[in-house]
Design a protein around this nucleic acid. Structure first.
Lengths: 225, 225
DNA sequence: GGGTAATTCCTGCATTTGCATGATGCGGCA
DNA sequence: TGCCGCATCATGCAAATGCAGGAATTACCC
């Protein structure tokens, strides 16, 4: 296998140079000249097409995340690892949405980082499982989900379809049209599901449904109990 | 380092026995007697306290996920890897919410699984990054988010507060009360934000807001552009 | 067959909502 | 100082919505 071209970006010169030196000791890694800022990152990336970029989050959201944007434009195949001092969940989410595949706390050792680099280069991904669990728990809004799902379980298939339409932001008549039934029918279904969910408006119903994990563009596939 | 105690659970006897035989070849793995169902899993887990449990998803949602629940009660420190034939995202989400730290497609080779077992035993986690990216993209509702956030950015602070209340399922008068203003004011704010978001009903507004990442119980903290 | 549940349709009525429009006060900015 | 954006309040009206009923058809289970 060819060497993996690694580009490190960090504005802490001392840290980044030591890290580069450490990575150079690995025979399968080809450490590119380090970059200290976004401009450097993009320049080196353009010239050397790194396989893996190790990016420091302390560059700040503007530069750190903005850089990602431009980097993925420039080299779509480059795989990005974030090296981070914080546990900020929202940053993690943004990073991953922008295409990052790795998230490594600075607290880990160099050998761990090297492992992650190799994993990532081979197409894998790495995010600490504890963080991931927290993240998913937060994104799926935690434990109320069970309660919400329970209430949703009592709905008829048709009612669930109507609810899904509501979640997508459709009005009464649009729902009726979408399901090919009369407006009155859609109305009845709506009323029935409102009663079953024990809510008093479509707004509440939507709020509840989304807490339960229902999303627009998502096929209705609530697991039956 | 001590051996890692591994418990394999799968109702396909042939498969599980071959897998156990393969894992036994690894000197650092202590393969416990395999289990074929939930009862066996819990029995062995109770007696031998495995470090890692490799669980087959084909046991079905009821047994597969239900088992997780009881397993984590029984041995909180046990780390769980799912071995799965499907790519079903909702199962993945549920599994992780229940504490799973690994998700391995059955299509991979044994050496890969062994690597994952070691990673997981050391406190790491493993989920294919492609899946993870898909998952997060779906949970955060993907690329429309940027568009939705952009529209949300034009809102006033007050309007955002009103919108947040709407997302929580509050009605007009409740919003007014919650924000300490007149119902008419809440009404005006609602109208203004509907206009700014270019939607024609509260339902659509909520749908849009949630696509943008706004969630109930979440403090209003939309990043400003 | 009888009971139960789901789906479909309908009506009437009070309230809410979406929409248009206007007005006041406050703070920043040129 | 005048202008502009924001927040605050208000009113009128047509349409939609929540709520309370009734009713017919189909399907499934005991």
């Amino acid at each position: 296998m060819n060497q993996t071209r690694v580009l490190i970006v960090d504005d802490h010169r001392l840290f980044v140079e030591m890290l580069a030196a450490r990575l150079t000791m690995e025979p399968d890694l080809d450490v590119l000249p380090v970059a200290h800022d976004v401009a450097g990152l993009l320049a080196v990336a353009k010239a050397r097409r790194p396989d893996v970029v190790v990016l420091d989050m302390t560059l700040g959201p503007a530069s750190g995340l903005g850089a990602l944007d431009r980097l993925t434009e420039l080299c779509p195949d480059t795989r990005i690892i974030f090296l981070t001092a914080s546990d900020d969940m929202t940053l993690l989410v943004q990073a991953i949405r922008l295409g990052a595949v790795g998230w490594v706390p600075k607290s880990v050792g160099a050998d761990r980082l090297i492992k992650v680099i190799r994993t990532v280069a081979q197409g894998g991904g790495f995010i600490p499982s504890r963080l991931l669990a927290d993240l998913l728990r937060r994104l799926t809004s935690g434990d109320e989900v069970a309660e919400a799902e329970h209430r949703l379980a009592s709905l008829t298939q048709r009612e669930r379809q109507v609810l899904t339409c509501m979640v997508e932001g459709l009005g009464r008549s649009e729902i009726a049209q979408h399901l090919g039934v009369s407006v009155n029918t859609a109305r009845t279904h709506t009323q029935n599901l409102l009663a079953k969910l024990d809510v008093h408006s479509g707004l509440e119903a939507i709020s509840l449904a989304m807490r339960a994990g229902l999303r627009p563009t998502m096929a209705v596939s609530v697991p039956h109990a």
